[in-house]
Amino acid sequence: MSNKENLVSNKCKKCGYLQDISHLRCLKCKNNTFDTIEANGTCVLLTYTILKAPPLEFRDKGSYALGVVQFENGIRALGQIFPKENLRIGMKLKPVYEKICNNLDGNEVYSYVFKLIE
C-alpha cells in the first residue's frame, strides 16, 4: 500500500481494545492512551454491497461496490472495492491507495480501496 494514507487503528494501552482513531477514550475502559497500529497483510471481505443510487458527491461514478474488511491483526475498515464484479464474503483483498471520486468542486478525492489479490 502507498504511504499516502496509512490504514491504522488505536490499541488501548490499558485493556488492549482495538478501535478507530477518532475515539478520544477507550470504548471499553475509558483509558485515553493508545498505541497506533497499522493494518497488517491481506484482509478478508466480511460483507459488501453494490450501490446504484450514490449520494450527490459520488454521482459521477454511477455505481460502485462498498465493503467491510478485516485484517489479520483484527483491524476493520470500510472502503470501495475494485472491480465490483464477482464479489463474495470471505474473499481475500489488499488495500491500494487511489482516486475514489471527483468531489462537487471537481477535485479528485483519494483514499484506500480494496482490490483482488492477483
Binding site: 454491497t49 450514490p54 459520488f58 462498498l66
Partner: peptide
C-alpha cells in the same frame, strides 16, 4: 468512501 444509509442497509442485509 461513498457510504449512504441504503448502502449500510445493503451491507447489513448481505451479512
Amino acid at each position: 468512501h461513498g457510504t449512504s444509509l441504503p448502502s449500510l442497509a445493503g451491507l447489513l442485509s448481505r451479512i
